[in-house]
Design a protein around this nucleic acid. Sequence first.
DNA 1: CGGTATAATGTTATGTTATAACATTTACAA
DNA 2: TTGTAAATGTTATAACATAACATTATACCG
Lengths: 169, 169
Amino acid sequence: MTARRKPSTETPVFPKPGHNHARCASEALRKAEAVCTARKTRLTDIRRQVLELIWQSHVPVGAYEILSQLNAGGGRTAPIAVYRALEFLMDNGLVHRLASLNAYIGCAHMGDDHHAAQFLICRTCGTTAELESAPLKRALTHAVAERGFSIDSQIVEISGVCPHCRATA
Amino acid sequence: MTARRKPSTETPVFPKPGHNHARCASEALRKAEAVCTARKTRLTDIRRQVLELIWQSHVPVGAYEILSQLNAGGGRTAPIAVYRALEFLMDNGLVHRLASLNAYIGCAHMGDDHHAAQFLICRTCGTTAELESAPLKRALTHAVAERGFSIDSQIVEISGVCPHCRATA
DNA sequence: CGGTATAATGTTATGTTATAACATTTACAA
DNA sequence: TTGTAAATGTTATAACATAACATTATACCG
């Protein structure tokens, strides 16, 4: 441990219940546009709609939940369309899949080209945040390398209670 | 880091292709009996069968794969029976579920009462090993606590290439 | 031993998540 | 403008998991 930690960079704040979420969402959409432009991929209608629905909150959403919202106005979109959009969004680093929930969440670090992520999932409010911990990353890399194993991808999903729910309880 | 690492305790060997697996399996079954006796739970026929099928290898198996093996001789066991057996085995720490694969694997540390586990999954041969790394555990615990989050459960699943497949390639 | 409570299993049906295969449309560039 | 690749539509099905209720087995008590 070196000195005091710097919350702004080392310890991103867990999304607060009352924060200005409209801002998160619009910011995310703006970044997504930028990423797609840079990568020469197309953020089509359905892809944008799926991304917007995902960014309605910091709670992961299931594919079929997205689907039913898409079809709320009487649409006839098929499941596969949602999965294709999700695949695109994940390939472009805009969305993550949470294997422990079979659900999807907007990526908090778009454009940063991080294909590995760790997540904190609050079992009370559902809010899920990315955990960017350099020491954790190092420990993981080291432990794996030590065993002669080479990493392709990794899943780290931690379920528990977030600071806000702890305070409320 | 303190001194040189001790492979026998700190760095368990990744299961080798040609190892005496019959031994792994019988050992596992023996331990399972002991655990159930100690916990006054019953390792019934179907539960033992499922556990044996899981221990046929170090490659995780899906519930329906287990089911079809159970029914290979013309049986009529229903999916729910397999899931109930799996639930029992997991509750008793005899089996783990791999969320990234929707598959199940025998626990390498029965009786050690470890409810958290990390896994190394070889994408080439499928072999999966538990990773017991104290530094990793510490880093994880620390990173999470630092953010005011309290842990209930965690999933760490690392996909890559195992030492033996790397050597072969 | 017989009764009774609990645990385990059987039976049937259905819910939830995800993909295959092939047809059609759209966007873009030569 | 037309050829091509990307995207979407359409239909069907695969893969994973649980609900609800009936029946059977086990163990424990009097």
